[in-house]
Design a protein around this nucleic acid. Structure first.
Lengths: 196, 196
DNA sequence: ACTAGATATGAACACTCGTTCAAGCTACAA
DNA sequence: TTGTAGCTTGAACGAGTGTTCATATCTAGT
């Protein structure tokens, strides 16, 4: 019973995440959500309290999904750097056609919201920081395996990567040219390994 | 009379731009706009047709503003590259505190909207392309003055710059550290000039 | 099979949304 | 001074917003 409840709840959050991700916080109405999830308003409010409450859980679900994807890729590879590169390519290139939006949901949220929704804004920032940290520790693993010159600052490299991903995902929406984007990612990772 | 009308209209567009820029298309209501501009609904609809019509003009106003800023900087400098760098720094760093939003309004629009507002979306893309072209021609000027190695592809460099700016402006909203951001911009422009 | 507690339902609430339009006002030509 | 063309006004429209809650339904323990 408890298990069923948890599964149901997770299912609701997953569907809500996709809709919020596509249309944004202000662009998504509770009626939209109710139709897509096939649930009545009372149930949402009993479980999540408000439109903001559900959005907050959607953000968390989104971030966790991303982190899990990265660690899955790392497990299937003996090069942390190659895993990271694959992660970036799938986030930037594949998600442009497959995902609800080509944008990173966290970046999209940070772009959209103002201090009128300070809670959601700071939650999105917090989650992005966590992701940046997981980039940094992946890069550190790569460094320990001599994939990256030892004098480089992995926190700084993670920052650069974060900037690059955000830029590329936005740019890809303007100009979707997979090969060119792929080349830019290759160049970014080549620079990581170089000695200057 | 015609002059006064044009000035009035431009004033309305300028105020609308700032509000839309801050709150986004869906986050801004016509009531918000009416209050900020101090105008009655009928007048807006007579002049712009719809919420979308006004937003479209706001996008155009925003883009034109940016292009004018860049060419003003170029006139006050004999190095196109230095002017461009100053433009980037002011867009990424200064606008974080001063402008309605730290984001580029065009990127923000592209991030927010879906095909439900195809007109606005493609207008934002079109304007961003124009801006990228003006980066490219600025870089070409720099190349002709030997500020940039002659074998580099200025269109490609402009693309990189666009990606970098979009990324940095989003990242700055998460983590506003002006010196670090400034260093990253310096590094980007140093790489432009280098011979690899 | 019965009952008590939890959960789901969907009509309804107060409010805001984008938009319209008849009536009033303004400013210039004759 | 008067006529008229065009702009401004603000009340009003129907539809949609996020949210609530009394009622109906379901579930689990006896």
């Amino acid at each position: 019973m408890a298990k069923t409840d948890k599964k149901k709840r997770a299912d609701i959050v997953a569907k809500a995440t996709d809709l919020y991700w596509e249309k944004g916080f202000h662009g998504t109405s509770m009626r939209n959500l109710q139709e897509v999830i096939d649930i009545r308003p009372g149930s949402i409010y009993a479980a999540f309290g408000s439109k903001e409450g559900l959005f907050k859980e959607a953000l968390q679900h989104y971030a966790q999904q991303g982190l899990q994807h990265l660690s899955a890729l790392k497990e299937n590879s003996d090069s942390p750097l190659a895993a990271l590169k694959q992660f970036v390519k799938s986030a930037v290139i594949d998600s442009q056609m497959q995902a609800p939006s080509g944008m990173c949901m966290l970046a999209k949220t940070i772009s959209e919201l103002t201090e009128d929704n300070a809670d959601l804004l700071s939650e999105a920032k917090r989650l992005l920081t966590i992701i940046e940290d997981s980039f940094a520790s992946t890069l550190l693993e790569a460094q320990q395996m001599n994939e990256i010159p030892s004098h480089k600052d992995c926190q700084q490299l993670a920052r650069n990567l974060q900037v690059q991903i955000m830029g590329l995902r936005t740019y890809s929406r303007v100009n979707y040219q997979p090969e060119i984007i792929a080349n830019m990612i290759d160049a970014t990772f080549l620079a990581l390994q170089q000695n200057t």
